Amino acid sequence: MIDRKDLGSWMDGPPGEAGYVKGSALGLPASGRGAVAPFWRRPLSLIVDWGLCVGISALLFGGDPLANLILFAAVNVLFLTLFGVTPGQFLLRVRVVPVRGRSPMLLRAVVRTALMLLVLPAVVWNRDTQPLHDVVAGTAVVTL
């Protein structure tokens, strides 16, 4: 008979390899500049970017929700394409870098932003702490 101990528990967390370094499958260093960014910096940079866009939208468009969303998408695509960072990411010292493929950053930024706006791809992560929108776009968020 199968025992609960044989199956493990959901409280143990996802299965993982002992000693696995996040980002190693992507060719990123284990620590320091260029390593996978800590989790907490991602949502915090998103909040900073969203707050900036809401503030600008309030001044220019009366806080229209659709204007907030369009402005957020435009800021993400523009800043990621030109600089590799959004204003919030710059403040929190993280950057978006390509990790596979040869597509231009403009295409990566459009795909990444479109999937991020769907929310679900942004909350599904792999063992390299890379959300689904980064996996599809071929990018990773690393420390500066």
Rank of each mutant, 00 (worst) to 15 (best):
L80I: 09
P14L: 05
L69H: 14
V141I: 05
G138E: 06
V75F: 01
D3A: 03
G13W: 08
G34P: 08
G19H: 08
V97L: 02
H133S: 11
M1I: 05
M1H: 08
R127W: 11
V119R: 00
V142Q: 00
L106P: 01
V97E: 04
L71F: 05
F83N: 11
L60F: 15
R102N: 15
R4C: 09
D64P: 01
A58T: 10
V94M: 02
A30R: 11
P65Q: 10
A140H: 10
T86F: 06
G8M: 07
S31A: 15
V111K: 07
A122P: 02
S45V: 14
P14Q: 13
L26W: 05
T139L: 09
F61M: 14
L66P: 06
P87C: 06
P43V: 00
S31C: 02
L44H: 04
T129V: 06
L7R: 12
L59I: 13
R93V: 04
Y20H: 02
L132F: 00
G84N: 12
L60I: 10
D49S: 03
G16C: 02
A35H: 08
V142T: 12
A58R: 14
T113V: 07
Y20N: 01
F39I: 04
D6N: 07
D64F: 10
L82W: 13
F90V: 01
G138Y: 00
W10C: 00
A109W: 11
G8Y: 08
G138M: 13
G84H: 06
L144Y: 06
A35R: 12
P121V: 09
R95C: 07
L107V: 12
L91S: 12
V123A: 12
K5Q: 11
R127E: 12
G16A: 14
V111H: 00
V123I: 13
L144Q: 14
D3I: 03
A35P: 01
G88H: 09
A74W: 11
L92P: 09
L66M: 14
P131L: 04
V136Q: 10
G101P: 00
H133N: 13
N126W: 09
S103H: 13
R108M: 04
V97S: 09
F79R: 02
R93K: 15
A25H: 15
R33C: 00
I2N: 05
G63E: 10
C53T: 11
L26E: 05
Q89P: 04
W40M: 04
V94C: 14
L144R: 13
H133G: 03
V48E: 03
A114G: 09
V77M: 06
